[in-house]
Amino acid sequence: MGRYIVRRLLAAIPVLIGLSILLFAYIRILPGDPCVAILGQHRTPEACAALRENLGLDLPLWQQYISYLLKTISGDLGASVVNSQPFVAEFLTRFPGTIELTIGALIFSIGVGIPLGRLAARKVGGWLDGLITGVSLFGVSIPVFVLGLALVVIFGVILGWLPTQGRIDARARFDATSGILLVDTLFAGRLDLFVDVVRHLILPSIALGSIPLAIITRITRASVIEVANEDYVRTARSKGLKEKTVDNRHVMRNAWLPVTTVVGLQVGGLLGGAVLTETVFVWNGVGRWVVDAIENHDYPIVQSTILVFAVIFLIVNLIVDVGYALLNPKIRYQ
């Protein structure tokens, strides 16, 4: 198992190097004079000089790359050209919002998708199966932001059931240590605010979770149908096990395997989708920050966000693969 993890970690190295080259190139292929392209309206002779110094624009290209690589590894991910705030500091204040949203969407998509998929599999070919298949088709066919806008109109504007903007009541005052409000409100002992956070989280989670929901439903359905036809499931029944045991132990323990992999792959889509969702729900996270950065031509922010999201994606999938190996004894012992 340890060897498996080491092998997976080593395999990630070329990908990380490729990623760094790509993002290094990103800042340098901006058309025109880099100073104009990067600093735009924020340029002053001093700022220009500082930028040239910082990016090492006067050095040969390979030296520039090495210097970028070393800085990145040491945790220096650049700074905003608008307000000179270092990326990392600002990112850390924004990221909890995105984590909360992503986790909300994951809980929604897994919590609803797996039961739906199992239900559809149990009723293969029936009307319920058709309905669930239709819903998941709709889920992958509706853009996050269109669904988001629709939810805002229906549940926020027309019905007025749920808040549609922000992460928490703007007047709330309490100690937000971690930035993850679900945790902070609980630690502050403010159950009322915790409920408020959950209410704020519902619509954005549904909007962001709709695509993963559809995909998880489909893969669960397909996987359960396949496993249910396996010989060992028939064996389990022939032993006189309760139907519930057959389902939970014999079918699901095997059907999980493809589902876990797919869930891991959804994380990339969720981080990307967060950009749009946060925009629709005025959600204070990395996504909205990136959108602001695009508007302000704050390219170093865009560059480093891409880097960090890609690294998160790689780490999550590494964890998922290790989890897969743990669930699957055939791999575990190799």
Binding site: V15, G18, L19, I29, P31, G268, V275, I294, A310
Partner: peptide, 23 residues
């Protein structure tokens, strides 16, 4: 490995990167 690199970036962010770089 090159496809791994591109696939590790959420596709909408990759597109954002390209459009911001190219105009």
């Amino acid at each position: 490995r090159a496809t791994d690199v591109f696939l590790s970036i959420p596709s909408i962010l990759l597109a954002i990167g390209i459009v911001t770089a190219l105009g």
